[in-house]
Design a protein around this nucleic acid. Sequence first.
DNA 1: AACAAAACAACAATCGATTGTATTTTTTTT
DNA 2: AAAAAAAATACAATCGATTGTTGTTTTGTT
Lengths: 334, 334
Amino acid sequence: MAKRVTMAELAKAANVDASTVSRALNDSPLVKQATKQHVMNVAADLGYVMHASARSLRRQSSETIGMVIPMRPESGQTISDPFFLEMVGAASNAASSHGYDLIVSVPEGDQKIAERRLLQTGRADGLIIIGQAGRTDRLNKLGRLSDRIVVWGGQTPDTNYTIVGSDNVRGGELATEHLFSRGRQNIVFIGETNLPEVRLRYEGLKKAYKAAGRVHSDALLLEQNFGGKDTFDAVRQLTSGGTAFDAIFAASDVLAMTAIHALQASGKSVPGDVSVVGYDNIGQSSLMTPALTTVDQHIAEGGKLMVDLLLKKLAGGEVRSRTTSTELIVRDSS
Amino acid sequence: MAKRVTMAELAKAANVDASTVSRALNDSPLVKQATKQHVMNVAADLGYVMHASARSLRRQSSETIGMVIPMRPESGQTISDPFFLEMVGAASNAASSHGYDLIVSVPEGDQKIAERRLLQTGRADGLIIIGQAGRTDRLNKLGRLSDRIVVWGGQTPDTNYTIVGSDNVRGGELATEHLFSRGRQNIVFIGETNLPEVRLRYEGLKKAYKAAGRVHSDALLLEQNFGGKDTFDAVRQLTSGGTAFDAIFAASDVLAMTAIHALQASGKSVPGDVSVVGYDNIGQSSLMTPALTTVDQHIAEGGKLMVDLLLKKLAGGEVRSRTTSTELIVRDSS
DNA sequence: AACAAAACAACAATCGATTGTATTTTTTTT
DNA sequence: AAAAAAAATACAATCGATTGTTGTTTTGTT
């Protein structure tokens, strides 16, 4: 493939000044229609493509947004949770439909460095952060930077950054009401409740209990991070222990899968003995055995929404936090 | 957060010329040790961070690599296949350990545009493309561009680009030999054999058949793309049809999951009636019911390898195609 | 102490585009 | 047809860093 053609060369070839070329290609009203056409023809002939860095430097904008997917070692959540990829895919598409690129950063270590690096070096004009993950205070401290950031997570009061996420309380309610309607009484909640999004789901569950005139016992709260490493054992233990339960509501589909696996290993049938409901509706949910009943938080919609809101913020618009539509998908596991 | 500090400002603050600052920060031998230290101190004080575009423009290198994940509508493979995310995660980490960023592009439409856009605009110094997907001829035509590209896929003769992938033939053999060792005789192969990587897996299967003095019947070849949309129905049909089979070897874990689901819906037990082996060893494989026997192609290793090879190519090194270690993971489904 | 050599730092050009301003060309007005 | 107004284009500075070259110190040699 040919060497890079520069704008100056293109200008010479088209017999106009570089400034005219620039304006022509950017469809400025200062250039005559005929000239624009001519310039574009010559550009096409020469196979001209604009140099991104030069434009970024001059414009002070990279037309790139960063997506930070923090792999907190302590959360145990692994990158292989399909949840993330659906986010990446949706965001990448949304970004490119606006002419933006998406830089994906999966910091293993200090996330703050990744964020600074992307924003302050001008590599990214704005940032999408997946999961506030108990770092609300730190995110709040970002101050002025916060109007270049959108976070995926649970709606939290008193934050000065924009949050997008599913209606976690409603999701928890939906799942719980559904299990009640199936005649289930004692629902084990699996998740790490110090994460805002998870805590809200749990609150939704408690809200539904309350509406049914009941109280959710703490014995039915199984604190488990997203990794699910020990979840298998924890569920087996629960099964053999004295706690009576006939349903499980897990904070993610992957946790739900693990739970089902553990139940079956303990000789319990799903949904015969225990109904299970997950959260996310990842692509594989419908392929599991039994197919997973789950709360669909419309990840793709969320990814696109985050990009749209971020670009609006970058353009100086006022933007409020938003929730994605949240809906129960009933399948065989409940 | 403070306004952007420019290098000129930093130079003034440190009482040296900008060129000296630049050399100091880049650890050039042309600057005295004491001066370096001084400059770095002042830089830290002012919270200086280098502007990426300016450096890219001058250096003619973006320190960024692009990853193109083509969503061929006809392949039906969706972004939600965890396979991709493991790639993204591994590549992102490998890239950032070299100080590079990773731009992820998931083109829905014309992939060629995405590639050109990334390389020719200088946004990315090199490209990782996931899946040659029957476009070997086109990729070959990239010519000079090809020394900025590494492709994930099946080892194919007569390509002028670098390929990284698992040892697909060996993987097919391993799966098949294992099923034979379980006493299985008639193995259905599920996959789209016009994709190089899939075809090679199938060839591995046939090779194992041949080694056992047998021939694989075409009736046991179930042509299915990665999407798996119709795979469920196809497997059910196969089950109710006249074809006798006692095992399935699927070209991906997601396909295997779908197959298991269909078998169970048809009243067959896995592995009682039919043994199933998948390919990929995605994170969920061990959480399925039954847990999936699968060929681990060490995706993370592959992602890292691709980045390493790409950077070596960019540095002018000579690089040959490589395979990742390929290993059978035996679980309950077989 | 005088000179050469080596080490260090400043000067100035450059990467490729964008944009405010000046200049030329075209159109409109009288 | 001349003057004024509007439109189109050219000129030149600029974004923030890097790097070849020149100039200045420092160090070393005899």
